[in-house]
Design a protein around this nucleic acid. Structure first.
Lengths: 200, 200
DNA sequence: AAATAAACATACAGTCTGCATGTAGATTGA
DNA sequence: TCAATCTACATGCAGACTGTATGTTTATTT
């Protein structure tokens, strides 16, 4: 009768503590930067001690990695929900880009995923994370478009990487206050330059 | 007779000390990362004390800024020297990009300028630095090409920013071991998609 | 040449990270 | 069911680092 109240299983405790740590860290990492956020502040916000943190995570960087992973998944989910599957290759690319920039508008997300992430975890690990989430959709979409013949045959990894970099920079600029219309126009021009017109 | 030996002017002392600090910091920041390099190590390598560092620079970040500024200038110089001015818009863009990726191959440069730089100084300040050095050439080249009618009318800032982001990512990937040929091909396709054919 | 200012060197306070050790609660095996 | 063990924490400590305050030497000014 008291199974849920006083006696918590170890797995429940772990899950709860890890969750609160990640949530608190996410809030602080997006309000300030990774370097400016100390572990004492994180554990205070999560209501635990530093002992709990270092029991569940190898170090501060491992906690950061968990936060980035979760945030990247959230962004990918937002994009997939906002991008209908019934569009042409060109329109799907632009709609996805639009959704990406919009999702990145959440305060602090660009710094977390586009500035601190690469610096703290390195580009290789960020590529790995992106490849499992946001960029996966992009790469698969590009592959399908290429197979359909609407896109010239190009190295898939490089194409995904460079288009992703352009979307990243657009998100960063728009989030910093640049006119979204300008970046939308340039992205459209780039995509139109790449996608083979169906009439040709 | 002893003007150069025992009696050094204050300006000479400042110049020498600042220079050695920047040189030592540059070496360490490219060997390791910004976060992994401590000021005690920097001043030891420069042969001075931390007092000298904090006399000449407001803080560690200000020294980092000076290093980034110098390195960005060096990259810009390398590009200008390697890019002949007698090429078409398309070829000039690709040659410049090639020179950029090559210049970024110097060990640690990508991390310094493309990872740590944006994270430590912020995108706004990095844009400012880039705008005074590397990206300035790019923007001016694009503006000239647009005026000549070989490029559709697009917002110049956004176009420069997004193309620059693609070059950045290519430099990062190639430096990390990705096949340069793949990235060259994709960049060429993007540029070819944008540049209006002179025959049209 | 005295006074002032600049270029350092030294010492200190505060903070942070990672680890080592200690303890209470949960799980397991007999 | 109960002791043994293991997990999930809490507490305390050592080392390192950053920025500043203060002292000292060397150049510049008057």
């Amino acid at each position: 009768m008291q199974e849920a109240n006083s006696r918590r299983s170890n797995r429940d405790r772990t899950e709860a503590t890890r969750g609160e740590l990640i949530a608190a860290a996410r809030r602080l990492f997006t309000e300030k930067s990774y370097a400016e956020t100390g572990t004492p502040e994180i554990v205070a916000a999560a209501g635990v001690t530093r002992g709990a943190l270092y029991h569940h995570f190898a170090d501060k960087q491992a906690l950061f990695r968990a936060v980035v992973e979760a945030e990247a998944a959230a962004v990918a989910k937002a994009i997939e929900q906002a991008t209908p599957r019934t569009l042409s290759a060109r329109d799907a690319l632009l709609a996805g880009g639009e959704a990406y920039v919009a999702a990145m508008g959440l305060p602090g997300r660009t710094r977390l995923l586009l500035l601190d992430g690469p610096a703290v975890l390195g580009r290789a690990e960020m590529d790995d994370i992106d490849g499992r989430h946001g960029n996966r959709t992009l790469r698969e979409g590009l592959a399908a478009t290429m197979r359909a013949g609407d896109l010239p045959k190009l190295p898939l990894e490089a194409l995904t990487s460079l288009l992703g970099a352009a979307f990243d920079r657009a998100a960063l600029a728009v989030d910093a206050g640049a006119p979204a219309e300008d970046y939308r126009a340039v992205l459209a021009a780039v995509v139109d330059g790449l996608v083979r017109k169906t009439s040709s």
